[in-house]
Design a binder for these strands. Structure first.
Lengths: 340, 340
DNA sequence: ATGAAAGCGCTAACAC
DNA sequence: GTGTTAGCGCTTTCAT
């Protein structure tokens, strides 16, 4: 291939200077319509393609924003990424993706990588391993916006977007109570990410408000996987005091619950099952799975909006950014439909 | 925040020149161990963070590779992205993501955007709308590697990674025949992307080899969605000549098939149902769904390997790159298990 | 409305 | 083993 054409080539071709070319290309202030047109024409003729790297070096803006997530394979994150990219693209931003795979070590490297790439900001959700959050502080030290979504952390003050997780747990439990279930178990996981704790608290609050003291042995902490749901259910069904409904920490856990029940000849809603996340299969399995929708698409869009809002302020003052709290949505389906 | 520290600051601090600093930082050839150590030390002390943008401008390499896919929300692509990022990261590459959302227009913009960002190469899978592929040629014109995966196109000669789709269709059909099904229908979609046509051809070949002439009315072309599967199944069940097994164009279509059958009081494997893609729910629904695994993770990894292989050649000669064809994997599960 | 020139932070010859 | 210097392609004052 021939050497790449630069604004110098355009300038030479038209006997003008690069500054004029640059102005024409960026459609800046006082450019005569005629030169603008001719620049654009020769740019096209010479097959010119702007070099964003060069422009970034001078302007200090890359129009790239870093997305740091546990894994693109987790559908919730895939959906957030999808929405983020789709929305930010329309404002001229591209997405640089980094997956932590739930590793703190990788998360640290990710922040460094994104920062070295000179991203204009970072939108992140924490790994399960993360306890110390000091690596996130570096983003702010560089004066770049940092937005945390879904998996927030007590120690990190940052603009954030999440759903009301306590209410999500409450909502799931309340729904089961409404359907007449009384002996409600909960399969979740244990760690410092707030959301799981908050949901669990919502579960306990709903029970208490219904005058039902939470049964300790009905709270099982395990893995958030199909296998985890399966194992947890076996444990629960081995109790003298068997539950009549089980809340799964997410929809995969719920799948495991259904599987374990099925092997015992039980089909929901005989024992009620509800999950979290509204995975795309949940609506379509038989029986269809009740779940709490976490509004991934909306969350992605809200993150993008928040980023744009922060970036257009100067100087960057993140303090006046109000956190966005989305409302969890109860999707009541067959797996909990005891009453008509 | 203070002004960013550059290699000039390190140089000044140590009374050496930037070239020495640069060499030390990049661990180049003949650097005395002592200066290297002191440079690294002061770099750390001054909180130095390399500016990849600046380095890219001189070196011509960004260590960023562009990923262009229809949508990160389609699980297959999410898995490929996951594998790609995970693998390439270990070689120092970052991922710039662009979604076409199945739009040709967007695909063209995507190629332009990625090229302007000076990516070192592009790994792409085509949108369903794509017929003319000239925008992809621009990548090669810039002398950058272009790898196509899964959704290839007759008109575009490029290194590629895919599964043997004809065989995938054959495999699914053969499996149903093995299970004693004889009247096998196929719900798919129609367009210029090769893979769907090839799978369909595999289906026809399997039937012919079994001495069963394909029934035209058993080939239904619709949307590759749950709704498409549902509608197609209703159409098929309205025929005098009802099928005894249905192949879904993907696992979502299969979900729609099962749903429609369920409403008629039929549960697989009474009528056999098999899908494509091995979505993560397929194993866990009841009855578990037979499917053809497309090896998304492996495909991502193979793309990454191919990219690295191409990039380390000089000059870039993509002609000698043998396409990688992965073998589709039959996952025979309950939805087709007629025989013991 | 356009030109001249400095410089963004780094790399890579080429010297010594 | 280290210094000097010229860019990479673009933006952006400051002139005119």
């Amino acid at each position: 291939m021939a050497k790449k054409t630069t604004i110098y080539d355009i300038a030479k071709e038209l006997n003008i200077t690069v500054s004029t070319v640059s102005r024409a290309l960026n459609n800046i202030s006082t450019i005569s319509e005629s030169t603008r047109a001719s620049v654009l024409a020769t740019a096209k003729k010479l097959n010119y393609r702007p070099n964003k790297i060069a422009s970034s070096l001078t302007s200090g803006k890359t129009y790239i924003i870093g997305i740091l997530v546990p894994s693109a394979q987790i559908q919730f994150f895939a959906s957030v990424i999808h929405a983020l990219e789709k929305y930010l693209k329309s404002f001229g931003y591209s997405i640089l993706l980094y997956q932590t795979n739930e590793s703190l070590e990788s998360e640290k490297n990710g922040i460094a990588t994104l920062l070295e790439a000179q991203v204009d900001g970072i939108i992140a959700s924490m790994s399960l391993e993360t306890q110390d959050v000091s690596h996130f502080e570096k983003v702010k030290e560089e004066g770049k916006p940092l937005i945390i979504f879904d998996r927030t952390h007590d120690d990190l003050q940052s603009p954030n977007v999440k759903i009301d997780d306590e209410y999500a747990g409450y909502l799931a439990t309340q729904h089961l109570l409404d359907q007449g279930y009384r002996n409600i178990a909960y399969l979740t996981t244990r760690h410092s990410i707030k959301i799981f704790r908050e949901r669990f608290e919502g579960y306990q609050r709903a029970l208490r408000e219904a005058g039902i003291p939470p049964t300790p042995e009905h709270a099982v902490f395990g893995e958030l996987t199909v296998e985890g749901g399966y194992a947890g259910t076996q444990q629960l069904m081995g109790l003298k005091n068997q539950p009549d409904a089980i809340i799964g920490g997410d929809d995969y856990v719920a799948l495991g619950i259904i599987k374990a029940l099925h092997e015992k000849g039980i089909t929901p809603p005989e024992i009620g099952v509800i999950g979290f996340a509204n995975q795309n299969f949940s609506e379509h399995i038989i029986p269809s799975l009740s779940t709490i929708d976490q509004q991934a698409i909306k969350m992605g869009k809200e993150c993008a909006k928040m980023f744009l809002k922060i970036i257009e302020q100067s100087p960057l003052a993140e303090n006046n950014i109000t956190p966005v709290v989305l409302e969890p949505l109860l999707l009541a389906r067959a797996s909990t439909r005891r009453k008509q």
